[in-house]
Write a protein that binds this DNA or RNA. Sequence first.
DNA 1: GTCTATAAGAAGATAGAC
DNA 2: GTCTATCTTCTTATAGAC
Lengths: 205, 205
Amino acid sequence: MNTKEKILDEALTLFSEKGYANVFVGDIADRVGIKAPSLYKHFKNKQAIFDAIIDQMNRRFEEQAKAMNISGNDASIDASIYKSLSEDQLLKLGREFFLYYLHDDYNRKFRKMLTLEQFHDVDLAKVYSKLYVDDPLSYQGMLFGFMVTAGILKTDNVQIMTLHFYAPIYYLLTICDREPEREPEALKLLDEHIKQFDRIYGREN
Amino acid sequence: MNTKEKILDEALTLFSEKGYANVFVGDIADRVGIKAPSLYKHFKNKQAIFDAIIDQMNRRFEEQAKAMNISGNDASIDASIYKSLSEDQLLKLGREFFLYYLHDDYNRKFRKMLTLEQFHDVDLAKVYSKLYVDDPLSYQGMLFGFMVTAGILKTDNVQIMTLHFYAPIYYLLTICDREPEREPEALKLLDEHIKQFDRIYGREN
DNA sequence: GTCTATAAGAAGATAGAC
DNA sequence: GTCTATCTTCTTATAGAC
């Protein structure tokens, strides 16, 4: 990893814990192993570091979205995976999704940073809403839509069913971001949530 | 309102929008209509203002909890209100609860301030979790418990049922805190959520 | 309790040598 | 690209008059 990347990496770590205003250029430099003035050879100023992190996330996200479109074409293939979805499979998928977002360093730090900066301006509010509200809901909603069509799930309001699936997961994620020691408790609730979700919306009903 | 109270009030307004570190003592003084140094006659320093806001919230919360215990004694009276709960009544109650927390200035500002400061230290994390995770869930869970006993609601896992009720409400609240212009959309989803909740857990099933 | 003046220090950023 | 030295500005907080 080159110096520029290392700066972004360490800055993200600090921003996610302390918030932009509480992180000093010197703190970032310390962690990178250089002096503060050297940092200005890589970025115009402190704000440019923050902006670069946001840009980087947008790029990664678009790549990921593109990769999903390639693997899933019109996403009906993604749904076909779920064609014969047992409760155990649903649990496994839910847990994997949850633990990935919780434990993946980049995802966790970026989410925490945005949490602290979401009210700072309209653009950041929109980024937060896109990443953690609208996109997960519309993607998950699309998958659930296919599953309803396939008769795996049953509902007359896919949007609300998706909200019922996703909102508790989001809620448990915010608990663990704030108090990581509550992860076991959250995982237990996650399992019970998914089991109950399956009972409510699954084939059997 | 005396000067000390006005300082707390204006400080909360600013902290909730910009975060503690981005608010300067002079900003608070400006809004109060005094000069920065005068502010130090009322509070030892900037941190003391923040701490006083937290203390004030704790006091208000304890008063409210006490008032609920008096009016509801062992809370079984609260539950009796819901004895004959129609979908319309559930909708009305849910909407009132949601709009109160969203529009009440003190609640909204305090919640937004804590959102921005929740990772700053363990104490603030605990305050956030108490106010917006554990207490709502245990209080709502208690009410739902009575309603299950009374046969108004049906479930074999009250905790998860409560999570299914509360998590979407929390989720919609965070959307509106971040993007107030999305309130109509959130209210529509709130209504559909509660209707669906009633269909899932209500008497009829 | 409020003011003006000011101290004290922190933090962002630049200059210029290497 | 990194460093030391330094500048500038901003911010908290105090001193002391009224």
